[in-house]
Nucleic acid binder design. Structure first.
Lengths: 188, 188
DNA sequence: ATCATTTTTTACCAAATGGTAAACCATTTC
DNA sequence: GAAATGGTTTACCATTTGGTAAAAAATGAT
């Protein structure tokens, strides 16, 4: 929980009373590996903060292939914010890649923050925009070959390689599992 | 200009007086093909709205290769918002892919909107977040082969193929110009 | 420990893509 | 009109990646 408060305070100042109010709006959510935080076709109902574990964002293309679009590890917000705000159905899944512990806000509680804490909206928007901005830049670069993408993935997410199935990493990097395996062999 | 007002009104309501105030904060900027709207290493100073033309976002990797990260065509916001807000240097270029006409706000004028128009911040944030969200999803899918990426590009940006150099499209799709040319031949 | 299941690696060949070089085409400039 | 320039296509071959199948290794359950 303290990590979460620290995370928020990056984006603005809050007094003790305000912090206590925020804490009071949260609940803890434990997700087992493979459980969904939110699902395609459903309206996302919660904003989460990853305390422990890794969440991945994924969807299925028209051939039924699973595509991993992002990984969200400790000390990050996890939410399909656009659809959460607009109460529209998401097109992708947010799934626990490992067992996870999250701090979550219901939509009601999240909105109560805006009405109760002066300046919360400013903090909130900075937080959400930084999230979206990072997501838009941190992914694998399509013009690089698969080996380079894998090496950069390891540099960006050093803690993930031994925690999540290689199939997820392969689908994130846009290669088959077999190709990724070959790449790993050639690197050693 | 009317297109811009219409664009804004998607995200909230404004009365005539407020709309006039917004208009008064804008200037028109004409950019010739290849001119920069903002540059890597510099702090972005303006928010723009594309009235006519196509802007592309691009950067250079450590091999000096140019990589196109996005295209922004008519009736869209164009701004490196994260760095604009934080007054930090951008890492990429926003460059005119064709001759362009933009409506622009200086940073001062953009901020004046927040102080003058009640509810502007809500509209602004919805606008910016939708921008970032779309950018994070509309790009080529790394797990698809080059032909599929090209076909989807044409479906997503039908108006661009005959307006901008193919080299830009190739670097956006993550293939060489020669490969793109071969792909185009095989499709006919 | 054994079996069943899942995950990861390997092998083989076909297909796609990159790199280099040259040709081709359209537009501008003199 | 000729020359120069920039953009696009073609051709060739080397390299990378995908698809299919099977083996090996790791994990979990009985």
């Amino acid at each position: 929980m303290e990590d979460f408060i620290e995370y928020i305070l990056q984006f603005g100042s809050l007094n003790k009373q305000q912090i206590d109010f925020i804490k009071a709006q949260t609940t803890v959510l434990e997700l087992q590996k493979d459980a969904y935080f939110s699902e395609a076709g459903k309206v996302p109902k919660q904003v989460g903060f990853v305390v422990e574990g890794v969440i991945r964002g994924c969807y299925y293309n028209n051939k039924g292939e699973e595509i991993t679009r992002c990984f969200i590890s400790e000390n990050s917000l996890v939410v399909d914010y656009f659809n959460f705000e607009n109460s529209t159905a998401s097109s992708e899944y947010l799934q626990a890649g490992t067992d996870c512990r999250l701090i979550v806000f219901s939509k009601q509680n999240w909105e109560d923050l805006s009405e109760t804490i002066v300046g919360w909206d400013t903090i909130k928007n900075k937080m959400v925009q930084k999230c979206l901005f990072q997501k838009s830049r941190k992914g694998p670069v399509i013009s690089q070959d698969a080996t380079t993408r894998y090496l950069e993935f390891m540099a960006n997410y050093p803690s993930l390689i031994n925690r999540i199935p290689l199939a997820y990493i392969a689908s994130y990097l846009g290669v088959t599992q077999q190709s990724l395996s070959r790449i790993r062999k050639n690197i050693r």
